[in-house]
Design a protein around this nucleic acid. Sequence first.
DNA 1: AAATAAAATTAGGTAAGCCTAATTGTGTAT
DNA 2: ATACACAATTAGGCTTACCTAATTTTATTT
Lengths: 219, 219
Amino acid sequence: MTSLAEENYLKAIYKLYEKNGAMVSTSALAETLQINAASVTDFIKKMAAKKLISYQKSKGVSLTEQGRLIALNIIRKHRLWEVWLVNNLGFKWDEVHEIAEQLEHVISDELIENLDKHLGYPKADPHGDLIPDAKGRFIKNSSKPLLECTKGDKVKFTGVAEHSNSFLQYLTKSNISLGDEIVVEVIEEYDNSFQVKINKKERKLLSKEVVKNLLVVVM
Amino acid sequence: MTSLAEENYLKAIYKLYEKNGAMVSTSALAETLQINAASVTDFIKKMAAKKLISYQKSKGVSLTEQGRLIALNIIRKHRLWEVWLVNNLGFKWDEVHEIAEQLEHVISDELIENLDKHLGYPKADPHGDLIPDAKGRFIKNSSKPLLECTKGDKVKFTGVAEHSNSFLQYLTKSNISLGDEIVVEVIEEYDNSFQVKINKKERKLLSKEVVKNLLVVVM
DNA sequence: AAATAAAATTAGGTAAGCCTAATTGTGTAT
DNA sequence: ATACACAATTAGGCTTACCTAATTTTATTT
Ligand SMILES: [Mn+2]
Ligand SMILES: [Mn+2]
Ligand SMILES: [Mn+2]
Ligand SMILES: [Mn+2]
């Protein structure tokens, strides 16, 4: 029913809307999908005709309820596949995104329900991103950037705000993994760098750029 | 490099060639792919230009070595995914083909090697079809239709010559599974039906249509 | 050898999803 | 209010993978 291209547009619109909290512009979509803006205009007109999005000429698009549910289903599939790739197939967290981009488009509700069951109904993917249920509902958690913490806070590392391979690999190299306990020991006022203790053992210095992208929940 | 359509054509050509042992006709391809013969002619000309197949006008096509390797790789992926769907996700053997038809087109050599490892390097899929290795090599076994056996033969059920859901479901309903031991007790000359004993326990009557499609190896 | 049937090809289209180049709209600076 | 910059749209094209209808080739029958 929905084509590969439509699924990718819906997912991109969903994510851009989440990030910016406003109607999604043609140019933003063109940028993230790596497609010419003229082609995007064309395409979103057809999607609007199918009631997948609502489109206000020259102003941007947003998802209809129908479009939102499809987007969430693709995101659900993407994240479940990522869990499988890391937990069962031995991939590293920086190696799974491209493969999940393909797997997310495989169509079979039973497949996804069986996969979900097989994985033990995970709540989050290997990057800490929450996995919506089959009806598109999230169990929201209270994570925030480590940057917003203050001295003495004891937190748990639950996700990343930046998904680039270079950031993921930096964390791997630095021996920082999802689930780690982080205690904020010193915050350097000058550059916002944090001195932290990881899992009660290792002491580490983290730059502002890093603490901005580490998502944590207070313990 | 090779498109979805090309992969499906290559696989269909491979299977038709295996079955008939001769050049594959335009009409046979059109029939299996459910595509108009004129479209097939069009498409095979382009594939021949890419050296995926060799094409003799009005006579038919056959795979080049390059095309054969791609076809075998798709078949390898299809069968590995089927093993996973049955062994790990709890699907029945008559429920996996359509899903594997989609999964076989996911592109990632590492994914397939990791999947193969995860599954314990299976030699055959849930229907007993052999799984080629990454270089397209099979470990051929000596299976033959049960129909070719004679009275007193003790054999092992290793595969099916017919993959229709109705046949697979008939076997499931009749409690006949891959790996079962079958002893031929009586062959009725008149209609070629077989009276057999399954796993030293159950006695069954199998029609010619059935014994023709049960592949076995002599024990 | 001629007629007929069946298979394959050619010719001319279509829809999906993209492109470039040209034009129009919108918001900001003067 | 006018000019300028940038964003968005329109117009016209292209490629892939299909289609139908018409024609040609091949195989079979008389
Ligand atoms: Mn991802
Ligand atoms: Mn992820
Ligand atoms: Mn199959
Ligand atoms: Mn199979």
